[in-house]
C-alpha cells in the first residue's frame, strides 16, 4: 500500500514538473512572438533604388535619426551617415561593414557611405564609436533585419 502511494506521489510530482516546464515554454514563446511582432510593425527605413536600400543616418549629441533602422534580410544596404554637430563614430555591433573602420570619425557635415548586405535576420545595436560628450554612452539604437 505504502509503495503504491509513494509511486503515485513520484508520478504526480514528475507530471506537475513537466507541466510547469511546458507552461514556462509556452509563456516564453508568447513573449518572443510579442517582440517579433513589435519589430515587424515598424516601417522599413529609407528607400530602394537600383536594388539598394539607401538610408540617411544622422548623428547628433546624443541620438541617431532614424532611431531604428529597419531592413529586410538579403537586401543590399547603403547607409549615408552624417554628423550634425561634433565628430561621431558609427558601428553596428556584431556586423562587419566592408571598407569601414569603426575608429573613423565623421565630422560635422561630412558624409560616410557604408555599403553591405544584410545577411542575417536579427536585432543589433548601433553605437557611436567616437567620444562625443558626457552622454556618449547613451547613443545606442537598433538595427533590425527582418526575415
Amino acid at each position: 500500500m505504502m509503495k503504491k502511494i509513494l509511486l503515485i506521489l513520484v508520478v504526480a510530482l514528475f507530471v506537475s514538473s513537466c507541466s510547469s516546464q511546458d507552461q514556462d515554454a509556452s509563456k516564453a514563446k508568447k513573449i518572443i512572438d510579442y517582440h517579433k511582432k513589435k519589430f515587424d510593425s515598424l516601417p522599413l527605413s529609407g528607400r530602394v533604388a537600383d536594388g539598394v536600400r539607401e538610408i540617411e543616418v544622422k548623428g547628433s549629441q546624443y541620438e541617431w535619426q532614424p532611431e531604428n533602422i529597419v531592413v529586410k534580410k538579403g537586401e543590399k544596404i547603403r547607409l549615408i551617415v552624417t554628423s550634425l554637430d561634433v565628430p561621431h563614430g558609427f558601428e553596428i555591433e556584431g556586423i562587419i561593414i566592408p571598407n569601414w573602420n569603426v575608429d573613423n570619425l565623421i565630422k560635422k557635415n561630412e558624409k560616410a557611405v557604408l555599403e553591405f548586405t544584410a545577411d542575417e535576420a536579427g536585432v543589433w545595436d548601433t553605437v557611436c564609436t567616437g567620444y562625443c560628450g558626457p552622454g556618449h554612452g547613451t547613443m545606442k539604437k537598433k538595427f533590425i533585419v527582418r526575415e
Binding site: 565628430p87 563614430g89 558601428e91 555591433e93 567616437g130 567620444y131 562625443c132 560628450g133 558626457p134 554612452g137
Partner: peptide
C-alpha cells in the same frame, strides 16, 4: 571596447574646449 564603445582609447576632446 568593441562590444560597448564605452571604453575608448586615445579620445580627442578638441570638439569641446570647455570640457
Amino acid at each position: 571596447v568593441y562590444a560597448h564603445s564605452l571604453y575608448l582609447f586615445n579620445i580627442s576632446l578638441d570638439f569641446d574646449k570647455g570640457l
